[in-house]
């Protein structure tokens, strides 16, 4: 592997299992950052706890590996304290939707300028395959040995309803479009979320009899329907499918800029 400008090449190889989607997400992100030509010194990569949250370790930026579920709350502090910084936040599905669900809702609502990437491998990978809120109902996990009994939600719909101004979904099967979505999300001045349908062959695939790494990729691919193609499909055909592509782009004033106005008002009052 040739040296990548945006990676800490001395920290590689990574810790992920063969067939893990995390590597694909990392490459897509790396390519997007390179295409956007971001300033490494002015970019912060924040993450929670989980396999996917190890990503910042390999990235040559200001990197902040936080506590489980709290990455967005740490990132909110970083961004509000210094709005000049470009801030990415990498989370797993458990990290972002279970323990960190509250922070996700409120980061969306505030429309704070963060670029969130949720790596959804449908499972708690790091702790060995327990169910997450996004483990499809009926599928197996170590803590759902008889099948996942709970219902799921659509993360992108949740983010949109909560106020995120850019929402997209990609997959690790579609690596080039994923890069494009991440790149596009960076143009949104506000809260952007890209959900990535990913793979955990160890914690999820094996237990659900999706044996090979390629079969799991196929499974991911088959769950996804491009948002444009979906427009022409029947409700019946779309049942159980997840839309991919840019789902929402509804620009609104970014939070730290709104706060700057407060500073202006307060400053005037102080002088009076």
């Amino acid at each position: 592997m040739s040296d990548k400008k945006y990676l800490r090449n001395d920290k590689l190889p990574h810790i992920w299992c063969p067939g893990c989607g995390n590597g694909i997400v990392l490459s897509a992100l790396e390519r997007a950052l390179e295409q956007a030509n971001v300033d490494k010194d002015k970019t912060v990569i924040v993450s929670g706890i989980g396999c996917s949250s190890r990503m910042p370790t390999y990235m040559d930026f200001n990197t902040l590996h936080t506590t489980h579920g709290r990455a967005l709350a740490f990132a909110t502090g970083v961004k509000l304290a210094n709005p000049e910084l470009t801030v990415f936040v990498i989370m797993g599905d458990g990290d972002a939707t279970a323990i960190g669900g509250n922070h996700l809702i409120h980061a969306c609502r505030r429309n704070i300028g963060l670029n969130a990437i949720v790596v959804n491998n449908n499972i708690y990978g790091m702790t060995g395959g327990q169910y997450s809120p996004l483990t499809p109902t009926g599928m197996k996990a170590t803590t759902a040995p008889y099948g996942m009994v709970e219902r799921n939600f659509d993360l992108c719909e949740l983010a949109h309803a909560a106020g995120a101004t850019y929402v997209a979904r990609g997959t690790v099967f579609h690596a080039k479009p994923l890069t494009d979505l991440i790149l596009e999300s960076m143009d949104n001045d506000g809260f952007s979320m890209v959900e990535v349908l990913s793979t955990c062959p160890i914690g999820f695939g094996r237990r659900n009899k999706i044996r090979g790494n390629y079969e799991l990729m196929e499974w991911v691919k088959n769950r996804a329907v491009n948002v444009k193609a979906a427009a022409k499909m029947s409700e019946e055909d779309l049942r159980g499918k997840l839309l991919i592509g840019r789902l929402y782009s509804e620009p609104a004033e970014e939070y730290t800029k709104c706060y700057d106005k407060i500073i202006e008002i307060a400053g005037k009052e102080a002088k009076r």
Binding site: L64, A73, T76, A81, I105
Partner: peptide
């Protein structure tokens, strides 16, 4: 800057993040 977070966990997290910017 002042921000009222969604809970105390987030408040603690945010001041750590902010502190890292100096």
């Amino acid at each position: 800057k002042f921000i009222q977070m969604e809970d105390e966990i987030a408040g603690m997290a945010a001041i750590i993040g902010a502190s890292l910017t100096g």
